[in-house]
Design a protein around this nucleic acid. Sequence first.
DNA 1: ATGAAAGCGCTAACAT
DNA 2: ATGTTAGCGCTTTCAT
Lengths: 320, 320
Amino acid sequence: MTRRDVARLAGVSDAVVTYTLNGAAPVAVGTAARVRDAIRVLGYTPNASARALRMGTSKLLGVIVPDATNLFTADLCRAVDRAARAEGYDVLTMYSGGDHARIGELVQVLASRQVDGVLLALVVDEQDVTVLDASGLVWAVLNPTEAVPGARGVGVDLEEGARIATEHLLWHGYRSVGFVGPSKDARVVGWRAALEAAGVEPGPIFECDFTREEGYRAGIEVAARSHELDAVFIGSDMIANAALRAIHEGGLDVPGDLAIVSFDGSAEAEYSWPALTTVYQPIGALAVRALDHLLGRQPQQPGTIALLRGELVIRSSCGC
Amino acid sequence: MTRRDVARLAGVSDAVVTYTLNGAAPVAVGTAARVRDAIRVLGYTPNASARALRMGTSKLLGVIVPDATNLFTADLCRAVDRAARAEGYDVLTMYSGGDHARIGELVQVLASRQVDGVLLALVVDEQDVTVLDASGLVWAVLNPTEAVPGARGVGVDLEEGARIATEHLLWHGYRSVGFVGPSKDARVVGWRAALEAAGVEPGPIFECDFTREEGYRAGIEVAARSHELDAVFIGSDMIANAALRAIHEGGLDVPGDLAIVSFDGSAEAEYSWPALTTVYQPIGALAVRALDHLLGRQPQQPGTIALLRGELVIRSSCGC
DNA sequence: ATGAAAGCGCTAACAT
DNA sequence: ATGTTAGCGCTTTCAT
């Protein structure tokens, strides 16, 4: 079922079908109507591969995320899909498992699919910058957990987000405020900055990666040292939830014995027990800005990552 | 950067490049090496659109899911991606929001992309069957929440899953066992069947859709009527978590005051408080079987949905 | 306002 | 073992 069939049925040439469909040239109203009828009758669907081949543009975008075990990641994918679809793009979502060699392979696949742009989400490396640049693809970074030289794109100001989270905890009067998360993360520096600005000695750091297992393990340590702690700032909703289980198992009350503020603002934070006060990352805006990048309408310095602000969402875990 | 460039650099015709790449014809070892060198030197990447146009097969699969606010859905997407990638397919994931008109549009898009198959996940309607059949695409249903005439594919035996969950609750000695979930779901019948088989009067049904808001609202009702309840079976991990918050807010202890078994076996059930005993849905096997369908190697009755068994994963919420 | 025709990059006969 | 070539469905000059 091709354009040719439609053209024949409508009694025109295939060019006219294109004109009608794409508005590429003026078409007489009667002709256009006949063409549309023929399309309907035949149930014709344009062949996107042929179009992509001819046009050199696939109207396809690639997104590489580390995984989908995290509601925040899933939400981010969804936000990208929504933004992309609004612009007429479909999106190919791929999972790297945080493995940079894998990212390289996936970039190959995306290049082969002739995607019009690639978004590399969350996990980014210098190696990835090299691969992506070499691929010749248009690309941008989406909400990277760390700034990498040579990467352009959009993210959230993690340091500032951690600062407002910690400031809120200080505002409650907590003086001994710990940190749960990876110690190389930008969030530690925001946490420490808030504490130091208030003249308070930083509490302990509970090192943990962004996995539920690790969050749980860290939570056990937090519970064990709860006597020296008023509160903790936890780097993500997902690990906060896992830590929460350990903290409850330790017989502690949140926020009574220990207050918590976390990060992400995903649905995981809303119906946990207690509901988590968290720093919401504006995923919708993030997705839109990232597309602006890919589609070349972001007037921005090369090699720079635009930082959006997170917003404190107050619920119960902080003691409010 | 095309096949032609590679061929020239390697001093062969473009056909030989194809032969080398696809093993479509014997190639002299020396020639093959030269071709591979040329490919590497030029950083050549085959054009998937051209290939799809020529071959009439895109090596692309479409998956339509209702949303991604649910970790179970996200996990399912991931499982499909893994299974598909293992077979050399990329997957286009699309979100319907559970809206059947939307599903129709997405099917159009997928048809246009010349996907080799479509998986319609979770939410399925007779209307969808019509649209999909009319599209001429190869399709199957993936883990539908209800059986629809004309739909082929693979799912989980929800009734049986609910039965083993409820039987476990009965085994604990609970006699008043409620149900939380949509009352039109197959899980109610499994729940009721287990109860009736044990000669126990079915407990109350707390009607609720599969959203966190609804789960929370239902949880409030459960808490309010906890005096007449020993346990509840809850239709999904996601709503169980939301209900858990309401139940805790009601000052109840789980499983002390009220035992819970839920459904899905997603990561959301593992690090909740308490950890949820749940019926695990074998998403990996589901994805693989669904692909078998699409790729035509499933020797199965047309119009039939193969049912896989869920497996009880015992954690703390049941009282074990 | 419409038609004819070339060509996007690839594969698969068919030739050699 | 390798080269030639037609054509997949589409868009786009360039004619008319």
